[in-house]
Nucleic acid binder design. Structure first.
Lengths: 227, 227
DNA sequence: TCTCCTTGTCGTCACTTTGACGATAAGGGG
DNA sequence: CCCCTTATCGTCAAAGTGACGACAAGGAGA
């Protein structure tokens, strides 16, 4: 066996859609290195703790949300020898998708945790600590790709949602407007994407809209088309 | 910092297409645990060695192939606390796609390294050591998905190949026959998938076939359709 | 050499899906 | 009650797909 001085951590890319924009949860680092800089939330894996358990624990700690129902998936692992100046730290990155709920950044003071618009971060490779810009880039690309072939956009929505609300998610994540009529047709005709709940809502104004729940299909056939 | 007794390893899923079938390179374990069982090739990450460097080094060691031009990508990281009875070992899995070349399992004796048909392995969760069945499952699914939206099938081929040879790759990886005429139309009409080399070959028998090289498109629009 | 066999490549045709966009439905606010 | 907003349905042409016929161009064997 080959044990060496090595830290194992997970970093979280927690995405939500607020005010029609894709946002990432960042924390301001209180200690060196990169003290005072914004970074992805993360932490070390405890002995005998599974990687996903670590990620889910941190997700709860940072957002105050019950992590049980939230979507969480592994994205990639980053292990460049010099990625952390303190020593060898290998980080497993996870992507979490959370709905835009009332109590977002609970449990931490507002100074040190914030939602930040993803496009701004992606445009500036130097704004985040460590290699977190790369992690964020990979995670956002993963999310964008997943919206194409999975019904995962619903993970950004409350349990019951309208087609328009779902479209808002796609537009925010993909960063491009979609035709409401074609989107409606596509979503309702793709088997297993959404199931009508039988009720309507007027919370978006205008004509009352049907409410839907996420369907059971693991993948969409045919997929949604980007660009 | 939080250093704990921890091993960091990489495991390789090296895929090729031989005799029209998708095959995986396995090695027979010479030491406990799982002594005598078949397993994915892998090894520990050296101090100050990048993860991908480790993977590429092992790819060369196991196959005898110059790893420079081979496709190698990270798949996922497996870190269940009990996945290795010797202690906590976290493994980063990589997927390699190699062409069916004359000197496949060089540098090792034939007893301890072998190409094995992937479908057989996938069908029997108990045949591989550790959690390697899960790793293999994830890696093969990744490969199958990538053939849909990327020109990666060419990584299984020699630099110059015919459309039929490419179709053989798809059929082997997806495990289903494809219509030669529709496949030909699709491949040649998808921009950036393949570029004609201007020469022909009769190595497949029958009418001479155009030779192609892999195109430059990173993704296929529209994608190839499975099932 | 000629015929047949094998594989490669081009076409056709019906059907589905997509993108663009007009039109109508059904609430709420003045 | 009119108008504004959003929801939802419909239409139509263009593009893509699946099924399959037909011909091209080599090699093998009679």
């Amino acid at each position: 066996m080959d044990f060496q001085p090595l830290g194992l951590a997970t970093d979280l890319v927690i995405l939500t859609v607020r005010d029609g924009a894709l946002q990432v949860l960042l924390i301001r680092r209180g200690i060196a290195p990169y003290k005072g800089r914004w970074a992805l939330p993360g932490g070390f894996v405890r002995p005998a703790e599974d990687l996903e358990t670590t990620a889910r624990r941190e997700l709860t700690e940072e957002t105050g949300l019950a992590a049980a129902g939230l979507h969480l998936e592994q994205v990639a692992t980053y292990g460049a020898p010099d990625r952390d100046p303190r020593g060898r730290v290998v980080s497993v990155a996870y992507l979490a998708l959370v709905p835009d709920l009332p109590a977002p950044v609970a449990g931490t003071d507002a100074e040190s945790a914030r939602w930040v618009a993803a496009p701004d971060l992606l445009a500036d490779p130097a704004r985040l600590a460590f290699d977190h810009h790369r992690i964020l880039t990979d995670a956002v690309e993963r999310a964008r790709a997943k919206l194409e072939y999975s019904p995962l956009a619903a993970a950004f929505c409350p349990p019951e949602f309208t087609i328009s609300e779902l479209r808002t998610i796609y537009e925010a994540v993909w960063g491009a407007p979609l035709d409401p009529r074609n989107f409606h047709r596509k979503v309702t005709k793709t088997p297993g994407f959404v199931d009508p709940i039988g009720a309507t809502t007027t919370r978006d104004g205008g004509r009352p809209a049907q409410l839907f729940r996420r369907g059971t299909a693991p993948t969409l056939h045919p997929p949604m088309t980007r660009g």
